[in-house]
């Protein structure tokens, strides 16, 4: 069994299993920079979450996979990822950490830890389960 680095809600079941290097996007400028670099399709995009609305251009320009650290599959981003058929794991947590996202009471360290662990890693998304989406080391 491949090494599962993180798990979260699977936004929709798909046999698509994109792989790429995780890129943490913190701001609209990061998204613009990535699109302009022409390397969008080489990365699995990591963002903080459901309130991250700046990701839309990346999805429309062909992002291959998304991981969020908060938010629900019913959120705006979840709806968009289904429309674009971009595999998406939401509210992912690290499998080697007890830290979990809780609405309204999650401290900064939770997000920092996930970003530090995943950013730059080569991963593959496994979105075949109807509930759990997995981020697997590739």
């Amino acid at each position: 069994m491949a090494d599962v680095l993180a798990e979260g809600y699977n936004v929709f079941d798909t046999k698509k299993s994109p792989s790429g290097t995780v890129k943490y996007l913190e701001s609209p400028a990061d998204v613009i920079g990535l699109i302009q670099s022409g390397k969008l399709a080489e990365h699995i995009l990591l963002v903080r979450g459901g309130t991250t609305t700046f990701l839309a251009p990346a999805l429309s320009m062909g992002a291959i996979g998304v991981i969020t650290m908060s938010g629900a599959p019913e959120s705006h981003l979840g709806i968009l990822s289904r429309e674009f058929q971009t595999p998406c794991v939401m509210t992912a947590h690290l499998t080697n950490s007890d830290s979990r996202y809780v609405v309204g009471s999650t401290d900064e360290a939770h997000f920092v830890e996930i970003a530090r662990e995943l950013d730059g890693k080569k991963v593959r998304l496994d979105c075949t389960d109807d509930e759990v989406g997995r981020v697997v080391a590739d």
């Binding site: 929709f12 599959p73 019913e74 959120s75 705006h76 979840g78 709806i79 289904r82 429309e83 109807d130």
Partner: peptide, 16 residues
């Protein structure tokens, strides 16, 4: 948001 999700996905035997 719930209604949009129900447009995209249907519940079949507890599975979306």
């Amino acid at each position: 948001l719930t209604t949009m999700s129900s447009w995209q996905q249907v519940d079949v035997g507890g599975r979306k």
